[in-house]
Design a binder for these strands. Structure first.
Length: 139
RNA sequence: GGAGCGGUCCGGGUGAACGCCGGCCAUCGCAGGCAUGGAUGGCGGGAGGAAAGUCCGGGCUCCACAGGGCAGGGUGCUGGCUAACGGCCAGUCGAGGCGACUCGCAGGAAAGUGCCACAGAAAACAGACCGCCUGUCCUCGCAAGGGGGCGGGUAAGGGUGAAACGGUGCGGUAAGAGCGCACCGCGUCCGGGGUGACUCGGACGGCUCGGUAAACCCCACCUGGAGCAAGAGCCAAUAGGAACGCGUCCUCGAAAGAGGACAGGGAUGGCCCGUCCUACGCGUUCGGGUUGCUCGCUGAUGAGGCCCCUGGGCAACCAGGGCCCUAGAUGAAUGUUCAUCACCCAUCCCGAAAGGGGUGGGGACAAAACCCGGCUUACAGGGCCGCUCCGGUU
RNA sequence: UGGGGCGUCGUCUAAUGGCAGGACGUCAGACUUUGACUCUGAUUAUCAAGGUUCGAAUCCUUGCGCCCCAG
């Protein structure tokens, strides 16, 4: 697991959402879930941990208790859309796992959007804009 | 017009912006030790009728070859279709409905075993509680007759039960009984029809044969196991990995070796047989566990779709021709916003009505994960076709 | 996604096809000045819908829910 060996990352600005901005390995999820801070917000639960990258990455966890495949897919897509649009408001250099609670089963786009903004505010408060990378990476 | 039955089709359309996934082409000494991946641009593609449940069947892959018997499992009216099936088509029988039509795990209970609680006299080689009839004895009574004891006949009647040993009627009898007769049921035989399930007709028997096999079982047929996280390949360094040879005994032989016998372990889902391989250790040789990546992986060399022609078949389906089509992810791609049209609901306005317009709201079930054939279950709203019954009008 | 297992009072568990039992709970009463302990009584269940059977928790079919294993 070479942290500095990332391939060329596309433009970090704009509203694109390539795979480089996402958590893709079970390892990475477990690492954040073990050592990250918990930020609850309505139907969402965010787990945050610093990474040593120039950008933040997000991973989504929607268990089968939330609903059937259609409901889960809709929530995933809505959250990805929100991350794509609001990514610029997030502090850089973070790995975030968003866990969807079962209360989101009936939630509309507006409700999920409100919960997502709650996560954004908490992130901004915990990691103010001139973020200094930590001296040693998390274990 | 009303009520209903069956079949079949659809599952909102168009456009715009920003994104996502993969394909082809081009560019980039962009990343990595390699396998391989990434970025940017262009062009075209991107969920369902059930994609679901995972209830069956098959392809495909590996298990060394996929064999025989037993056990186990599955199916169960008949004939056909199919790669196969527990599926489909046609028919038979049974049940339901006035009918269109629907439903049925629908073989065997006279091969054997088990079970049939409670109630009831009796629950399976029947039996006798009450009752009915009757013989004899005692007794009461003038008598008719009554009561009791000991016997015999009976299975019509009673009550119990899910079920009581053929049913109904007539005759018959002391009372009764298939004891006799008629019809029905049952069984056997004969004849006709049908490939067959079965059916039609006749004769005879004379009632002997309860239910339960989604109880064991019998009969007929089918059946090896696991599953794409199967499996195959690639890569730097360190092996504990892999392959090959060597087991014991006997005979022949000087030896090399040849032949025969036997034991142990393992694979073949279980057991037996058969077949195949040889554990440990030693020697020789080859090379790579894990991580990661690629292929498998999306099909034009398809069990593909349409049902448009031709032929066969009642049909399912088959043969030939024609046309059409096919997402490929792997923390897992389809979302957000807007415009507009069509549909449904509520409400308001115009209008005699038909209808027109405004505002607000609504649109189900459910998302590929190797592929295919079925089954089952879920589903807002709608289109089309055929048929049945009832009522009205001409 | 694939494979496997299980559903009985509020909880943990029993029940050869024949009245669903027990323990811990809960409630009420008794005992006690009160409480605890103890005693007595009550309460409450076969995941759902069909089918087989005289009769189903049990057998069959379909559905629903939960759990486990495999990266």
């Amino acid at each position: 697991m070479a942290e500095g060996a990332a391939p060329r990352v596309p433009q970090a600005t704009g509203e694109r959402f390539p795979k480089a901005f996402r958590l893709l390995q079970r390892r990475e999820f477990l690492e954040v879930q073990e050592g990250g801070q918990k930020l609850p917000s309505d139907c969402l639960l965010a787990l945050v941990q610093r990474n040593n990258r120039a950008h933040s990455r997000v991973g989504l966890t929607v268990s089968s208790k939330v609903g059937n495949a259609v409901v889960r897919a809709r929530l995933r897509r809505v959250l990805r859309e929100l991350f794509r649009k609001r990514r610029a408001q997030w502090p850089p250099g973070l790995d975030v796992v968003l866990v969807v609670r079962s209360s989101a089963k009936e939630a509309s786009f507006a409700q999920v959007s409100r919960a997502f903004d709650g996560v954004t505010r908490k992130l901004q408060r915990l990691f103010p804009a001139p973020t200094v990378p930590p001296k040693e990476p998390a274990p």
